[in-house]
Nucleic acid binder design. Structure first.
Length: 341
DNA sequence: AAGCTAGTCAACCGCCACTCC
DNA sequence: CGGAGTGGCGGTTGACTAGCT
């Protein structure tokens, strides 16, 4: 049973030949695709329009990146997936040059298994029940072990095939300690909260200076942050974005959100932060300017540039921000992410 | 070398939403 | 308003390949 547009036609199925690819490319580059249902006829292809569209979008489009997923891309996938669930097209929008199909395949073939191997439910990103009973002791051991999900593994280089990534490779790789880019000053609350500790046992990923975001210094912020991390054994543990601290009774939305964007609700914690929040609100227009929007992606903007900005565009934020209560509520991500799955 | 297995990924299927008439 | 046509999306399949025995 085919699609409406091709159900009456005699169409070829299966893999595309180089000749078919060439016909499709030639037609679309000269005429544009217009109405997809008419493309095969005009291009001289025995395919249905839907198949042509898919072939173009997933394989022939000139702005496709191809190749292996980088650690950064993997991190974005995990972070966005935690919010949106299996909305591959939405996730792919945050990965210039990647298609939803690619992201979906990568998730199913690699990330999902890694999450499971680390005891995380790939749907909820929470610890699997079988791991819950031991997680307290695991947490205390985390920073003593060299192969925990929170240690840094330098094996995965940029562009390395994901198929070669071992299951202990952390989802989050840490950036080189450095001040934020001068052109993108952090919001005052984040300047306080997000500081790169100098004593993390990480290794440079050999990536550029812009690889971001999901890191903060628990130790430093604990003095005036309502969530007192000094009492935990995670004191010096870099937090993986795939690791879901909601399980431990505190939120990590700052980890989740890009370095320049965070949910406003999460900040209204104490008087000092309320003052800072006021300052931040005044900077909202700047936030918009820094959004990682689709127009940049369409221009084939380099990933590194994109990561200088937020991982999340405004539409994405609006679609995911929920009432304040969710940020302090264990398990609150489920209704956010899974209400339609 | 042959057979088996698991992983990868391109492509298809089926559903939904939107637009147009 | 309702049906047809179409685009878009997520789930699934199956061909192909690499690695292991």
């Amino acid at each position: 049973m085919g699609h409406h547009c091709c159900s009456k036609q005699k169409v070829k199925r299966g893999l595309w030949s180089p000749e078919e690819d060439e016909k499709l490319i030639r037609y679309i580059t000269t005429h544009g695709h217009g109405c997809w249902s008419s493309v095969p006829k005009h291009a001289g292809l025995q395919r249905c329009g839907k198949s042509c569209r898919l072939r173009w979008i997933n394989y022939l489009r000139p702005d496709l990146k191809r190749g292996s997923f980088s650690a950064q891309e993997e991190r974005v996938i995990i972070d966005v997936h935690r919010i949106l669930g299996n909305r591959w097209a939405q996730i792919a929008k945050h990965l210039p040059g990647r298609t939803d199909n690619e992201v979906k395949n990568f998730w199913n073939s690699c990330i999902k298994k890694k999450l499971i191997a680390q005891g995380l439910d790939p749907k909820t990103h929470n610890l699997l029940p079988s791991h819950n009973k031991n997680h307290a002791c695991n947490v205390s051991q985390l920073h003593h072990q060299s192969s925990t999900p929170f240690t840094i593994n330098s094996h995965m280089k940029m562009g390395e095939s994901h198929s070669s990534v071992d299951m202990n490779t952390p989802f989050i790789t840490l950036p080189t300690p450095q001040p934020p880019p001068p052109q993108l000053p952090l919001h005052p609350p984040l300047q306080e909260a997000i500081q790169i500790p100098t004593n993390f046992p990480y290794e440079d990923l050999n990536t550029s200076s812009t690889n971001t975001t999901l890191l903060w210094n628990i130790k430093e912020q604990s003095s005036n942050h309502p969530m007192d991390f000094t009492s935990t054994s995670l004191e010096n543990t870099p937090i993986s974005s795939s690791f879901n601290p909601l399980e431990y009774g505190y939120t990590d939305e700052n980890c989740l959100w890009g370095s320049n964007v965070q949910p406003l609700e999460a900040q209204a914690m104490n008087h000092h932060q309320q003052q800072l929040q006021h300052q931040e609100q005044q900077q909202q227009p700047k936030l918009r300017e820094m959004d990682f929007d689709d127009s940049n992606e369409e221009k084939g903007q380099d990933m590194e540039t994109s990561y200088n900005k937020s991982h999340f565009d405004l539409e994405f934020m609006e679609s995911t921000l929920m009432p304040c209560s969710i940020y302090g509520n264990t398990g609150s991500m489920e209704p956010l992410a899974w209400d339609d799955c």
